[in-house]
Design a binder for these strands. Structure first.
Lengths: 209, 209, 209, 209
DNA sequence: CCCTAATCGAGACGGTACGTCTTGTCTTTGA
DNA sequence: TCAAAGACAAGACGTACCGTCTCGATTAGGG
């Protein structure tokens, strides 16, 4: 959501802050009921009890609106402390799968990713609002793994970032593919098998590169 | 594409087989130029030199059409024989990344996946036409790994299928996420690191489950 | 309906004569149910149990088909012998009104007249098939009036034709307007008043021109 | 054209009054060039420089639009004062014939009458907007005839209305039939003969009913 | 306490695509 | 050769949404 510049004219009627929240909530509600392609901004405005003008004054279009509406959903992710690295990873992956099981997250996210293949600004907005924002979980997890001695300490910062990116791609990609493409739920069994594969690869990879 | 039932009435003018191919090619062309959201079936029909009715007679809508148009792209994948399992995997993953780097594949695939979150028939069509169809690569790869002794023989058929599914989710998901979400190319370096992670996990997982 | 030329090639499968009648009947049936604007040639063909091709082979379009279908309706008109000119006229006008009360006649006739304002060939077809064909009633009526001495004998053949045309315009026009535009039925009362006006004008006109 | 109810919500952008006029003018223009059956609302909208939605917001379809477009044409009729009843009638009938000679009037009027045979609301709209509206000419003419002593005063109001209706059916019907069906122009000669017939009938009818 | 200016709701506007329908032609198989 | 069946190119249908615009009606400061 675009924040108003601080030096903005302070005169005139200020924008309603309630409208912002109402619009994002209405967007998620409409995504659940209608999906991406049948979601219309006019309908979102009506649900939010707001005029179309009010919506367009804040967002430039459907893509940007849905990115913001979906991004909020992923902020509730956090790395649990279950005692072992494997258990921690399983926990956060299950949380991620739970969010993706919600229809507004699944269809909203996939749709904006699809649109972003032809819109660099949108891709950047997705990266900033969603991807980079959650990469904190990987860093925190590895940090905890090193503290516990479950992972060897990573010294090279460049190599460290590269590995974090790879892990994030593997985790996020695999869960999304399992949930949305294969069509099977990412349940506890699957998450346990996936975590074993991932950790096995990580340990093997760092032992004898 | 729906094949006509064999006992279909053989009367009337038969459907043009050239039109089928022209429509799918035009669809890919339009996807490249316009992307998913600006692709219109009227435009596809015009590009294919075909009336809209001809298009609607064969496909029920944009979703189904694009699934078929994209599915053809993935049929050119094949498992190369580069001497080692790791090299073979790297080869096929690179091919997969190359296809996903084509805009018609990327935006078409993501868009229909997004739509499939609210349309079970569409999800099934995607699974049948694309996912299950390419899972052959995983099976073939493991078979070759076992022949070469790089992988321990898998005896339990149920466990075997479960692992194949997991591998496919990890491979396809990671490459898609890398290419489309993270926004970095899935180049040779990344593919090598990813393959190492995957193979490490596989070997570790089968040695001490 | 285009009649086959007598020296036509007698080879090949002959055209079905039943089809002609079936198509005209189906056209009237469809006119009753659907009216002019929703009548489609495909539907007529289906009702007649005939392929569209067969229909187009005989008529060049909707206009021509409906002219032929409607023209048949007016052939059942005849001048009754009720003893006096006034009664005879009332009788035939009531018959005419009865035909126009049938929806297929009313809407078919008005529609082709509307189309004929921009299609001279169609106007000619209407005149030949419907108007001139029924003008016999006027001539026969005047002839009978003169025989009975109710009308003075008309000697000038040019003047005679002019008057016949005028009478036909007045009779046909007034009944059509009453029935279709004013929206009131052309019942016995109205027909009596109209006939009185017409006969009064005719007698007055011939007495002191 | 539907007038907005006076208690209508005064909120929102008001409808453009220029659009109304532009659409009706464009309709007449298109009727002249294309006739009824080839007139499309999309084309009318384009000619009027207006979106299709704007047109459909005001009229429910082709029929209603053309009724309004044609009705305006007949408002220019007026009863001239030429000194005698016969001359006055001849004058207004000639005016009427002149309007019917314009293609937009002829084909538009006939077509909506044809459609009205299957649409009571449309028939009522035609009666209200065109027929009843012009019946004023008959009333005015008879009034003037009575003032001049050319017609006996009519006392029974019911009988009076019945006669006015009859006269209107005869006049309008005969002119339309002459112009559109018989295919001959309603020129001065014809109008003079017709007026003589009509007036003769009227005088005869009122002298000895 | 009013003034000013940006906001709000409502809804009409010009466009554009939709998915369906009809037209008149063409291409099959079968009689 | 014609018939039936139905696919074909073309194009209008009436609807829905888009993103913009014009309204009158609120709201806050700031004077």
């Amino acid at each position: 959501m675009q924040s108003r510049t601080p030096d903005r004219r302070a005169t005139g009627r200020p924008r309603s802050t309630e409208a912002d929240a109402a619009i994002l909530a209405a967007t998620r509600e409409a995504l659940v009921e209608l999906g991406w392609s049948k979601l219309t901004l006019g309908d979102v405005a009506t649900r939010a009890g707001v005029a179309k003008t009010t919506l367009y004054r804040r967002w430039s279009g459907k893509n940007e609106l849905v990115v913001d509406a979906v991004a909020e959903l992923f902020d509730e992710l956090e790395l649990p402390d279950r005692g072992s690295l494997a258990a921690d990873i399983e926990g956060v992956v299950l949380q991620f799968a739970a969010i993706l099981a919600r229809p507004e997250a699944a269809c909203g996210l996939m749709a904006v990713v699809a649109e972003s293949t032809r819109d660099d600004a949108l891709r950047e907005r997705i990266r900033t609002s969603i991807v980079e924002r959650q990469k904190r979980l990987v860093l925190e997890g590895r940090c905890r793994g090193e503290e516990r001695g479950e992972l060897p300490p990573q010294t090279d910062p460049f190599e460290s970032a590269r590995t974090a990116d790879l892990i994030f791609d593997v985790v996020a990609g695999a869960v999304v593919h399992r949930a949305l493409v294969s069509g099977h739920p990412a349940d506890e069994d699957w998450v346990r098998a996936f975590t074993a594969l991932l950790l096995g690869g990580l340990v093997a990879g760092t032992q004898q590169p």
